[in-house]
Simulated scan of single mutants.
Amino acid sequence: MTTLEAGASTLDARGHANRRVPAAAVRARLTPWAYQAPVLISLLVFVYGPLVFTMVLSLLDWDLVSPDRTFVGVDNYRRLVEEPEFPHALARTGLYVLALLPFATIVPMALAIMLWKRPGRASDNYRSLLFLPVVLAPVATALSWRFVLDPLGGVANHVFGAVGLPEQDWLGDPDTAIWAISLITSSRFVALNILLYGAALAALDRRAFDAARIDGATEWEITRHLVVPQLVNTTVLLSFLCVVFAGQWTFTNVAVLTQGGPDASTDNIYYRLYTYAFTFFDAGTGAAAAVLIVLILTALFGLSTLLRRRRALG
């Protein structure tokens, strides 16, 4: 057999060429997947696996203890929609989002710009102090606020009494409880988002702002017309993250301080999910609530993506 014959592709019974893929080409194709395998396996095990299990569990009637699991179909979802507790908790979660949105965008943006305009060691120290609420344990923070807002001997009422204002039952009054929980949670949003705004500001070119100062622009004009417009994308992202995390980050404070009361005024969808699953031992309804939360957040993410694409296209 000549060299030319040996290098030619062989033909099968039907006359089709049988070309062998070189081993190097196979390795080139598989190498990226090998690098991505740990991430993909982690997603399957810790994200999509539990999500699929939750979806299956939402179709069952199970008390977390009994080995018997009865298939009930969409009855758990129907119960969530028909009973007033979950829609009420959903509405309260929306109220949390509205209350926390300024603390997730406007307040940290203003503080980050102030620190950015005064670079140096003092600015770094202030930024570290402002980041403390993220480092502290949420349960410990909530317990500290319980003593501050205590209606009998709390620091807040002592301050109010000293300046002649009426004392309040901050966590026991339906009119003030949800705002108190929102204020307690706001420190985490401010602390984290200052760093995110600071990272966005660090990418800006200071020479453009120096040129504007030479041309006679005031600091307010520079901030309003040059700095803030370049933070729009960061603001949109942090607004969406506020929608995602408002219910989660208020959950600890609700569970420790009010347990959803008084009169369900501080309830939210995450505490309602916890109540279904671990107070009433109704795992199916709790799983159905979790699935609905995922669907709602997915819909909001899709809507925000669509709006951003339309805005980019003009």
Rank of each mutant, 00 (worst) to 15 (best):
L57V: 05
S123K: 05
A212Y: 00
M1L: 14
S182N: 02
I296F: 01
F189Q: 04
A211H: 03
L149F: 04
R146E: 07
F147I: 08
V232Q: 15
V190C: 00
Y48A: 04
N253G: 13
Q168W: 08
V254A: 05
L101K: 02
L129Q: 09
T3G: 15
Y276F: 15
T279I: 14
T176W: 06
F131T: 05
L111D: 08
L238W: 02
A24Y: 15
W33F: 11
E167N: 09
V236I: 12
G216S: 03
G94S: 04
L292A: 06
R118C: 02
G120P: 05
V155S: 05
V21Y: 13
D210Y: 04
T250K: 10
G284C: 07
H88N: 11
Q36L: 12
S186H: 01
W179E: 03
R224A: 04
S128I: 08
P174K: 09
A34F: 05
R207L: 07
T31F: 14
T141G: 09
V254L: 03
L300H: 01
N18S: 15
Y35H: 08
A203G: 02
Q248Y: 15
P166Q: 00
A162I: 07
P38L: 08
W145D: 05
Q248L: 15
D282C: 09
T258V: 00
V135N: 06
P84Y: 03
A17K: 15
W179S: 01
